[in-house]
Design a protein around this nucleic acid. Structure first.
Lengths: 349, 349
DNA sequence: TACCTGCGTGCAAACGATTTCACCGTTTTG
DNA sequence: CAAAACGGTGAAATCGTTTGCACGCAGGTA
């Protein structure tokens, strides 16, 4: 397996083997020996040990250490959404794994949309955000929604930026996203496959791709699109709980509910457990796949967003750009995958 | 920079340093020494040499060698398009760089669309294609267009597939693409910025995203959408040459022309050089950025597709999947970038 | 013949870490 | 009090390469 073994078999010193294998113009006195070396190497499926080579050649592991900042652009409500904490943890882990220095992490909720602040104000806020860092980081990872103006401001501060789960349409910076429409479709079609006809939606509506996916899927399957079944809310367990409390006492209710975020569904399930309402037990499916989804009772069926893939790819793309790999923005789109647990039952008529 | 330096400074043997740095429970007689070592390491920004560590620890470089097949799905005409040869060369280079074995490369033009063959026929053809390989490869890279049925057939043969430049809408396998619409927009808007109002299109039309991008951009800028200015053709230099020959003798001609592929534009430029037609010298822009685009006279302005990025990312994503990284299909979308050379002039009125 | 040149080879020293082994001083045990 | 156990330490071997250096052998020149 090593160069020594080859040398031993052929009957030459291992320096000769090394030379034959590396230097293409290296001549052996006897072409015979040369042939034999190459042949033996091939037969033994010899592959040079990268580590030894690089060590000797002084090739520093090509990953240069670099400093990376993280910005989490929370909306007011997402502060309590564990999906984000889990995603952030994975990004941090990935930074460590790649021998990078996590310079600083900031949480801020003023960058997610442009409505409240002027361009100049946003620019000033962005500048202040990481200003206490004495050395500037090589790259920025933005986690969560981020307005166009904020992106513009950050582009002036960082040469290399990647956004994770920003869900924008235009891409003027590198992006790792997970398409909301197909996520919603996967969830809703699972309910449909179980025979549900009256399917509700709970979550963000305004400009939400998941909501669009929900609507489209109903349309595609010619199902009732009842506006009463759509409940707009921010993601938090509390909201889910309260919504279910109200739902229980209503007359016309959906048999299946798609929640845009797990944490809402968790709240709803807890509410159902509290009241143990025999007469109303809707199937509930959501999307994100937070850890808690495995521990509810019944366990929550959901559409998993591949958090670890998102983190890994985000760092890979950021490092590729930092190291001068690609110039034009790239967009990496991942897909969710249906995780069937216990919270969805076939509808019986 | 090395462990020895730290040892030297602190005044202990370098084995002690190693132990302090690695073994978290390692106690020094004097806590003082321990503190000093850690401190010095931090001050010197010491990072352990990965190669040396892995060599000693016997960690095989984590990239397991794997065999990769390449399929180039040519259309009849693209056989002569150098863009593909250049792209293939880069993919091959990337395979080598990553210590993978390029198992075999096949060229085939029956997989690009479904119209001519039945599902079963395609399945049989796919099976036969790589059948002579005794050992099955770990992954397949598909370069160029590929029909849905063909994809399905290959999915049965390979667990890991990535397509490069397939330009499909649905993604049931990993993909690296470069959006045709924005490419066309970049090109056409360059012509518009130079004052052109009568802008023609030469290239593939049926289902071509670049053609759609051309149309959309004209519409967006309220420009004449004259069907006489659209010439459908396959990409080859010969076709470009002949089209220009006919164009020269026409009355109503565009002042700016966008060619879907460089190779067509090259043919057109050669034609213009041949006839040296004083009265008609349209601005020509295209997309791909093949090598020859730098050597025409005038040098060809074009929209560059980042071939090397495509190759690098394709292999990265394929290896990520082979090594059990991600499960659900991912889509990586790159952007073209405008390369302004000499073939586009401002229109003078 | 004596000397230089050139080429193919093997020896041994790196590369930077980890780890075995032996050593030595201290503390515990019989 | 002697013997054994222990814990911290440094010297040195090791991982698999590449490569500078010296040596030996051949052929050409003076």
């Amino acid at each position: 397996m090593s160069i020594k073994k080859i040398a031993e078999i052929v009957g030459v010193s291992y320096s000769t083997v090394s030379r034959v294998l590396n230097d293409t113009n290296y001549k052996c006195s006897s072409e015979e020996v040369r042939r034999k070396i190459l042949e033996t190497a091939r037969d033994l499926k010899y592959i040079p040990n990268e580590n030894a080579r690089n060590l000797r050649l002084g090739n520093e592991s090509n990953k240069k250490i670099c400093q990376i900042d993280i910005l989490v652009t929370r909306t007011d409500s997402s502060e309590v959404d564990p999906f984000f904490s889990e995603l952030i943890r994975m990004v941090e882990g990935e930074i460590l794994k790649n021998m990078c220095i996590l310079s600083s992490v900031r949480y801020h909720h003023e960058f997610s949309d442009d409505t409240h602040y002027s361009k100049d104000e946003i620019e000033r806020m962005a500048k202040r955000l990481f200003s206490e860092n004495e050395t500037k980081a090589d790259g920025l990872i933005i986690i969560g929604k981020c307005s166009k103006n904020a992106i513009k401001a950050f582009k002036r501060l960082y040469k290399c930026i990647i956004s994770v789960n920003r869900n924008s349409t235009n891409h003027e910076i590198d992006e790792v996203t997970c398409d909301g429409r197909t996520i919603a479709t996967l969830a809703v079609e699972h309910l449909i496959s179980l025979g549900h006809k009256k399917i509700g939606y709970v979550g963000g509506c305004h400009n939400e791709t998941r909501f669009k996916g929900y609507k489209e899927t109903l349309l595609k399957h010619n199902l009732e699109d009842n506006p009463d079944f759509v409940i707009e809310t921010n993601q938090s367990e509390q909201n889910g709980y309260e919504i279910m409390e109200r739902l229980i006492n209503r007359k016309n209710v959906p048999t299946g509910i798609y929640c845009s975020n797990d944490i809402i569904a968790v709240g709803m399930i807890k509410c159902l457990n509290k009241y143990r309402n025999r007469y109303y037990s809707p199937s509930i499916i959501s999307s994100d796949d937070i850890e808690e989804a495995q521990y509810t009772k019944p366990m929550l069926s959901t559409v998993r967003l591949p958090k670890s893939d998102m983190a890994r790819f985000a760092l890979y793309l950021l490092l590729d750009r930092i190291n001068g790999g690609h110039k034009a923005p790239v967009k990496l789109e991942l897909q969710g995958s249906l995780i069937i647990r216990e919270s969805c039952m076939a509808v019986d008529e």
